[in-house]
């Protein structure tokens, strides 16, 4: 196994959330973070950079997180990358819908930035 730092792609349309997430994953998790501000940009970056995991926002304009996730899974080049949804929609029905989708985990917004990295690591077994 190469010992280079893990790479995480954060896809969120909110600039501020991207920034905070990036900072906490970099500082606490010690990982390298790439960001994308839309589903489309995320799809491209995922394919090109082949990150170790993707943190994906659900409510985004143009292409929402659910659609983005499906496309990540249909693309052979990205279908193996674990995806964790970050979402502010946390009603039971939403939860079930996300669970049916087959993502690796769902983290609720707002999240505690000091444990986010640990949560991500726990889910991915890092």
């Amino acid at each position: 196994m190469p010992t280079t730092a893990k790479q995480i792609l954060v896809i969120d349309d909110e600039e501020h959330i991207r920034e905070v997430t990036q900072l906490c994953l970099e500082m606490i998790g010690g990982w390298e973070v790439i960001t994308a501000s839309s589903g489309n940009e995320g799809l491209v970056k995922a394919e090109v950079t082949q990150p170790d995991a993707i943190l994906l926002d659900v409510m985004m304009p143009d292409m929402d997180g659910t659609t983005t996730f499906r496309q990540l899974r249909t693309n052979q080049a990205t279908q193996h990358i674990p995806v964790i949804l970050l979402t502010a929609k946390l009603q039971a029905a939403d939860q079930r819908r996300f669970a049916d989708l087959g993502v690796n985990a769902v983290i609720a917004k707002p999240f505690d930035p000091t444990i986010l990295a640990e949560q991500v690591a726990a889910v991915l077994g890092w």
């Binding site: 909110e14 409510m59 917004k109």
Partner: peptide
């Protein structure tokens, strides 16, 4: 709730990082 959580996420995240 989504609209409220979105700015809250940024606030919580930023303050959490500061508090850490």
């Amino acid at each position: 709730s989504h609209e409220l959580r979105t700015p809250l996420t940024s606030i919580r995240g930023a303050l959490g990082m500061l508090a850490s």
